[in-house]
Design a protein around this nucleic acid. Structure first.
Length: 471
RNA sequence: GGCGCCGUCGCCAAGUGGUAAGGCAGAGGUCUGCAAAACCUCCAUCCCCGGUUCAAAUCCGGGCGGCGCCUCCA
């Protein structure tokens, strides 16, 4: 598989360093509020990355995704809510898990929290190693990383320090730093803030230290294979993670850096909690859209391109997925045994084409194209009667193969598992309508169909009988 | 001010040197009690201007337009 590596700014063939195991760290949510669909674009894309590594490449994936449960915002919001930090962040971890399940994200191997004691101890050890290696200084009770001590600083973001001129907003006097680009490792706390002391003095973690420390602790040391997150993390977060890990261990931190581009709203602005223009997964569901449509939208644009989110795109995605589901449903009516060479060949080339698209830096839009070409071929074969039950088995198998990675069909099935009208009622009413039709009482038949349509159930008549589906 | 990305049909979106995938929407037709679904047919020369090449949406240069990072951020 070829993956674009931010570190080299180029696409490179990927293979894990140690045997068949891919050790991957992905930056998760800061749990001070419910994640929005921009956050979930990143998570869904990285879910597809992990699925491709597992199911297409056959690797054993060990993924760590953190919850940042201590920082300025979590502290501020928990204080505002008058609740202990841990309790406050618990609810947003639960909300994340709910949304992740709704969107069909696979469960990752480890989900550490920054405030778990083992992690705080690992961070402390890293800070101490950095102090020992001469990369730090103390000021007003905080410990800072002194970037001038690390010549390689800046390798990921490639920022031209000299280019930072008027116009750039630099965090200047908030803290007493020797250089504007120095960053805090261990932060002095006020009496009302959570404070820990495992050997580096009382304080709390700086933003970046948790990821460096937890990645090395839970992925068995440097270098890890993949580190991923949203593009906005390239600088300063990931750059500083590299500085910390490499300053402490003297070894390269990570081999592949993968960054997912932003989701933008229709007008073209970035979604941001501070601006208030955000939508959550729950907001999308509340508008009547399926979770599967959202997942589809998030995969219909390559992960390294900005995705302009609109409600119309959700409706289009839902229609597109309906086409796939209808095709799969039509297979149920095939009863003739056997296989057809033409279809067999089309299924095989679709499987191959799909894998090639995914191996080309996760070209999900291209992979969807391959899937739809097969949909067309299958529909044509059904209409022509050129399909047998062996073909059906092979077709179902290849769609399962697609969906192991894309995950849109399984989410759609989950969406539709609980229709707005109970299944036994639908089936009873369909029976009544069938009787009406056979006595040519079409007015009654139409009335029944309209009635169900109003309640979100669509009926389709065919030679094989009447099929229902959720609208 | 510095660094970087992007501009393909009405909408969304692949393709990145060999003559434009796919989805949605639309038009006509077949099928159907009607409807839906499905199938068939139709529907772009790739922001503009130069250049390189036998050949460019794809490479180079210059414009115009949109966006991101340099600051908390997925």
């Amino acid at each position: 598989m070829r993956l674009y590596n931010t570190l080299t700014r180029s696409e490179e063939p990927f293979a894990p360093l140690r045997g068949q195991q891919v050790r991957m760290y992905t930056c998760g949510l800061t749990v001070y509020a419910r994640g929005h669909i921009g956050n979930f674009r990143t998570f869904v894309c990285l879910d597809v990355l992990r699925r491709a590594l597992k199911h297409l490449e056959g690797y054993d994936v060990r993924q760590v995704m953190n919850y940042t449960d201590v920082d300025d915002r979590t502290i501020k919001e928990s204080q505002k809510a008058g609740r202990p930090l841990r309790e406050y962040t618990d609810q947003y971890i639960a909300a994340y898990l709910e949304d992740a399940a709704t969107l069909g994200l696979e469960t990752v191997e480890e989900t550490p929290r920054a405030t778990d004691e083992a992690n705080l101890r690992a961070m402390t050890e890293m800070v101490q190693a950095l102090e020992k290696n001469g990369h730090t200084y103390r000021s007003d009770g905080s410990i800072y990383f002194k970037i001038s001590t690390l010549p390689k600083y800046g390798q990921l973001a490639r920022l031209d320090h000299e280019g930072i001129k008027p116009g750039a907003r630099i965090d200047t006097d908030k803290y007493d730093k020797e250089d504007a680009r120095d960053f805090v490792l261990w932060k002095a706390t006020t009496p009302d803030e959570p404070t820990w002391d495992f050997g580096a003095g009382p304080g709390r973690p700086g933003w970046h230290i948790e990821c460096s420390a937890m990645a090395l602790r839970l992925l068995d040391g440097a270098p890890i294979d993949i580190h991923a997150g949203g593009v906005d993390l390239v600088f300063p977060h990931h750059e500083n993670e590299i500085a910390q890990a490499e300053g402490a261990t003297g070894e390269p931190f990570c081999r592949f850096w993968v960054h997912v581009e932003h989701l933008l709203l229709g007008e073209g602005e970035k979604m941001s909690k501070s601006v208030g223009n955000i939508f959550t997964v729950q907001d999308v569901l509340a508008k009547g859209f399926r979770a599967s449509a959202l997942r589809y939208v998030l995969l219909a644009v390559h992960y390294r391109k900005q995705l302009r989110f609109t409600w119309a795109s959700l409706a289009q995605a839902d229609e597109a997925l309906t086409r796939v589901m209808d095709c799969l449903a039509r297979l149920d009516a095939v009863t003739r045994p056997g296989a057809h060479d033409d279809l067999t060949a089309k299924v095989a080339s679709a499987r191959k084409g799909f894998a090639e698209m995914m191996a080309a830096d996760l070209n999900t839009p291209g992979a969807l194209g391959v899937m739809f070409e097969l949909v067309r071929a299958v529909n044509a074969a059904i209409d022509a009667g050129q399909i047998g039950t062996d073909d059906v088995a092979a077709i179902r198998d290849v769609f399962d193969y697609f969906d192991q990675v894309l995950g849109v069909i399984s989410v759609r099935r989950a969406d539709d598992a609980a229709p707005p009208v109970p299944v036994d009622e639908i089936e009873r009413v369909i029976g009544e309508r069938k009787a009406a039709r056979s006595r040519r009482d079409f007015a009654e038949a139409d009335r029944i169909r309209d009635e169900l349509a109003k309640r979100g159930i669509v009926l389709e008549d065919s030679a094989q009988g009447t099929r229902w589906k959720r609208k």
